[in-house]
Design a protein around this nucleic acid. Structure first.
Length: 191
DNA sequence: TGCCCGATTAACT
DNA sequence: GTTAATCGGGCAA
């Protein structure tokens, strides 16, 4: 049986937690799969929502680690983050893609597509497939309906520049499972 | 207050 | 390749 991730797992820098999440299993209300792509947003990072201080939207980022930060992107989509580091540091990991494994019918119904590669490849798609909305903003990651399990085997993690940002776009803070067909975009570097 | 832009996606030409 | 959908935050006026 895989080991559950506790709140202590998130009491570290996003730059440690983010690569460790690759290969971990994320379930929401019994639906989900392995995390194959994430991005780290440190509070000193100009691209992070928390960079300019607390607002009503990003308040959860300034709270305790091990909780979900869910925000609306482009006024349309929901994006799921895991808050990291000691309380107040305001750093988080964006969940960008999942390999669908459990609850495929529910994901297909919510997404309105059949192709597995279109179910959870992208931050907005992950939330739609799992049924996550702003209603889940601030809830704990170690309690239902969330279930998180550590990876059972070592994962080959690749890193590269983050997607869809203009500030600090050169920083290689996007992490992925090497060779996964469920990445939202391929990683440039091989080997 | 008003205007521009953004951690996106799907549906166009 | 481009563009619409749609809203919170930052910043100028």
């Amino acid at each position: 049986m895989p080991k559950r991730l506790t709140r202590a797992f998130f009491k570290r820098s996003v730059h440690e937690v983010a690569p460790d999440l690759i290969g971990a299993t994320l379930l929401f209300d019994g639906v989900g799969g392995r995390i194959v792509e994430v991005e780290a947003y440190h509070h000193t990072d100009p691209a992070a929502h928390s960079f300019r201080g607390p607002t009503r939207r990003n308040a959860v980022m300034f709270g305790p680690p091990g909780h979900a930060y869910v925000y609306r992107s482009y006024g349309i989509h929901w994006c799921l983050n895991f808050v990291c580091e000691p309380k107040g540091s305001a750093s988080a990991v964006l969940i960008r893609a999942i390999e669908p494994a459990i609850g495929l019918p529910a994901m297909r119904r919510r997404r309105g597509v059949v192709d597995e590669r279109l179910l959870c490849t992208g931050p907005g798609r992950v939330c739609e497939a799992l049924g996550i909305t702003g209603a889940q903003n601030g809830i704990a990651l170690d309690l239902p309906p969330f279930e998180l399990f550590a990876r059972t085997r070592a994962a080959e993690v690749v890193a590269g520049p983050r997607i869809g940002i203009t500030k600090a776009a050169d920083k290689p803070w996007r992490y992925g499972l090497k060779g996964s067909p469920f990445l939202s975009k391929p990683f440039a570097s091989s080997v």
